[in-house]
């Protein structure tokens, strides 16, 4: 049977751990000991009561939301502006897409230096305009800003290339009709282009969201979740931190389970909203 190896791998390393993870979330397992005690919902109670939960949720939300909105908005804007005959457009397209194929770990390491408050690129450019660089390393808000900007930089090419392809596959006759009706560029964009781009926008909102919620490498490389302990810690990073640094695998599994439920809910809502949108 051709499917068997793949099915066996997916079952063993995707579905089994998904379920096992739920079991672990009700234990106090420490990742290395052969045994663990079942402690009921204590981990969940702890999660809801803990002080850092709120900050970590906010970090995750800000990072994800800003990444999705900004990379889609800039990608769309860029695609609209470059959807015309321009010299060198294909070269620009390749250049903008290039960071997307580079690993998050490498970009994180490199951009830690780009944002270096003492000798980095940002500091140098700002100093030339007489401005002072924020302390991206020490201030939690700026650290989160740094991580978010870096991830947007990496992802911009993806949203741009997909929007550009969608724009170029659109119906020209609608553009012409709008022009004959004397539509302003803004109404043309809102009434003609945006509705046609709807499936693309939906696709991007889901993929960019799922990808950005899962980001680990950039955060690890740039901040290790800090400064001040949880300055840029997201749910994914907390799973790692609790399980492999604090040796609280049970609690880590709890966070992972909660994260999975959040992801499922968001995707479900997105699909529902989109269904409604296309029917009317």
């Amino acid at each position: 049977m051709l499917l068997l190896p793949n099915l066996a791998l997916l079952t063993t390393f995707v579905y089994r751990p998904l379920i096992d993870n739920i079991r672990l979330s009700f234990t106090d397992w420490n990742i290395s000991s052969p045994t663990a005690n079942v402690i009921g919902t204590a981990n969940y109670v702890e999660w809801f009561g803990r002080e850092d939960t709120r900050q970590i949720l906010t970090n995750t939300l800000v990072f994800t939301f800003v990444t999705v909105m900004v990379s889609m908005a800039i990608g769309l804007g860029l695609a609209l502006l470059l959807d015309q005959k321009l010299r060198g457009r294909n070269m620009v397209r390749s250049l903008v897409f290039a960071p997307f194929v580079v690993s998050g770990a490498a970009i994180g390491v490199a951009f830690q230096f780009v944002f270096d408050p003492s000798f980095g690129l940002i500091r140098d450019v700002m100093a030339r305009f007489g401005a002072q660089s924020p302390d991206f390393y020490q201030q939690p808000g700026w650290a989160l800003f740094m991580v978010t900007v870096t991830y947007i930089w990496k992802n911009l090419g993806y949203t741009f290339v997909i929007y550009l392809a969608a724009l170029q596959g659109r119906r020209i006759d609608l553009d012409e009709a709008a022009e004959i009706d004397g539509a302003t560029p803004w109404t043309h964009f809102r009434k003609v282009l945006l509705p046609q781009l709807r499936p693309t926008t939906f696709f991007l909102s889901i993929t960019v969201l799922l990808n950005s919620v899962q980001v680990f490498d950039i955060i690890y490389a740039m901040t290790r979740g800090g400064p001040l302990g949880t300055g840029t810690t997201t749910l994914v990073f907390q799973v790692y931190q609790e399980t492999f640094i604090n040796y609280r695998a049970g609690y880590g599994a709890t966070v992972a389970t909660i994260m999975f439920l959040i992801l499922l809910t968001i995707t479900f809502i997105q699909v529902r909203v989109m269904d409604k949108g296309t029917k009317t």
Binding site: L3, N6, L7, L10, T12, F13, V14, Y15, R16, P17, L18, D20, N21, L24, I31, L210, V213, Q214, F216, V236, V239, Y240, T243, F244, A249, G252, A253, A256, T257, M259, F260, L263, L264, T267
Partner: peptide, 21 residues
């Protein structure tokens, strides 16, 4: 459906149990 649904499960959620195994 089983194969395709695996797309919905991020690596990050399965690492703890896979690490143990």
């Amino acid at each position: 459906l089983i194969v395709i649904s695996a797309l919905m499960v991020p690596n990050q959620i399965t690492v703890i149990s896979n690490y143990a195994l």
